[in-house]
Computed example of a mutant assay.
Amino acid sequence: MELTACDPAADEIAALRDRARGALLGLAVGDALGAPAENMRPSEIRRRWGRIEGFVSDNPVGTDDTEYAIFSGLLLARHGSALTVAHVENAWHHWLADLDEGPFRGAGFSERGTLENLRRGLAAPITAQHRHAWSDGLAMRAAPFGVFAAGDPGEAARLVAVDGTVSHDGEGIYGGRAVAAGVAVAMTGAGPASVIAAALSVIPMDSWTARSLRRAVVAAQCDHLDTPAMERAVRSAVVIGGYPWTDLAPEAVGLAFGAFSAARGDFRTSVLTAVNMGRDADTTAAVAGALAGAMSGAGSIPAEWSSVIGPARGSCLPSMRGYHVLDIADLLTPYDDEEQAAS
């Protein structure tokens, strides 16, 4: 039966499509906003730009966060709920490890370690046995799984763990599961409290990731004199002072959910809070942007930001050049009968 614009089912599909676009466009916007502040302390950000309120680069562009999210989205669109570790491993070989192109500029240490292991002939899950299996490299590409499994956080968490088996372990997997589940519930239009609860429901409560997420949210919801004071409290709740690596999954996921909670899901405030806290700012802002964008839809993203996002340039993953996050969002959401007939 053909759906019309007046059918409730058509309206539901349109709303789901809008939230899917919001999630992945929000990820790309957050990534591009946060990229210049990556690995910086708030004091360094203030000295250079004051407070970041928009793009500070003349040529804003997404990093490996956006390109790996596109990679996982394409993989998920191809296999859906039937996705297996073998599918993921084969895709890493076909699109990444077996290509002569490289050296995959901007890729995180977890991805570089995985590529090296694959090129050595190792197979999953041994490919994830490297020094950065706990990184936020899975969390940064987890949003497509929440989009695909909208309303089903358990399925979103299951699928992202399948993807992550090739590159991550332990806390790295937990970070991806938390983000995927949070996006899955945000895709229903649920508020921040439900989104946070969903993220916590799919990871061990005594895990480092769960503890960091809870501490960040509690700190974000306390009364503070001003926004910088709130950001300092959230950072202090989860950041390990003096630790040289900023891509810890428990830290990045905690900061992202803390920013989202402090902003009560408002898109602009969520991503700017994440960006101005520094550390792995492109990833924390990408995750916060995915959560806020999924909750409120593409229309919640300021036009002056969303209009900047074009097709991926392939700066990190040459094989992802030319793909746009909006196309990936559409691939991961249902079609109505008219669209299906035209495709």
Rank of each mutant, 00 (worst) to 15 (best):
L33A: 07
V85Q: 11
A86V: 09
P244I: 02
F109Q: 14
L213V: 08
A15G: 13
R268D: 10
G164K: 06
H94S: 15
A288M: 06
G289N: 08
I126C: 05
G241C: 04
G164M: 07
A150T: 07
W245Q: 14
A142L: 06
G50Y: 05
E12P: 00
E89Q: 12
R313Y: 00
L248Y: 01
G297W: 01
D152H: 13
N39L: 09
G121E: 11
R279L: 03
E251N: 02
S236N: 15
R321N: 08
A342Q: 12
I328T: 09
F109R: 11
A292H: 04
L96C: 14
H168D: 13
F148K: 05
S270R: 01
W49E: 10
R264Y: 02
W134K: 07
R279C: 02
P8N: 09
G34P: 02
F71I: 05
E67N: 10
L326Q: 14
E53A: 11
I301H: 05
S81M: 07
D336L: 00
D152L: 06
V239G: 04
N117R: 14
P204S: 14
R21W: 00
V308T: 15
A229N: 11
R268I: 01
D65R: 07
S110M: 12
P302L: 05
A143M: 05
H132N: 13
I196M: 09
G258R: 02
W305T: 07
T209L: 14
D7K: 00
S110P: 00
D337K: 00
G102L: 12
L24P: 02
G254N: 03
A37Y: 03
L248N: 07
A274K: 03
W245I: 06
S236R: 14
W134M: 07
L213E: 12
V202G: 09
V287M: 14
A312I: 01
P302H: 08
G242D: 05
I70M: 10
D169T: 09
A197E: 15
R120G: 14
V325G: 07
S43T: 11
A229Q: 13
A259M: 01
A124Y: 01
G241D: 14
Y335D: 08
H93C: 11
V56A: 08
T227S: 14
S57Q: 12
V325K: 04
L3F: 09
T333I: 00
D266N: 08
A197W: 06
L96V: 15
D64A: 10
Y243I: 00
H324Q: 09
R264S: 04
R131Y: 01
W92N: 10
V85H: 06
W208C: 10
A133K: 13
Q129Y: 03
P192F: 01
R321A: 12
R177G: 09
P153Y: 10
D206P: 00
E339W: 00
F71L: 14
G62H: 06
G241T: 06
A37G: 05
A28L: 02
M277W: 04
G254E: 03
G297L: 04
G73M: 07
P103L: 11
G164A: 11
S306R: 13
A149K: 04
V234Q: 05
S270C: 02
S306W: 06
G241S: 13
A290N: 06
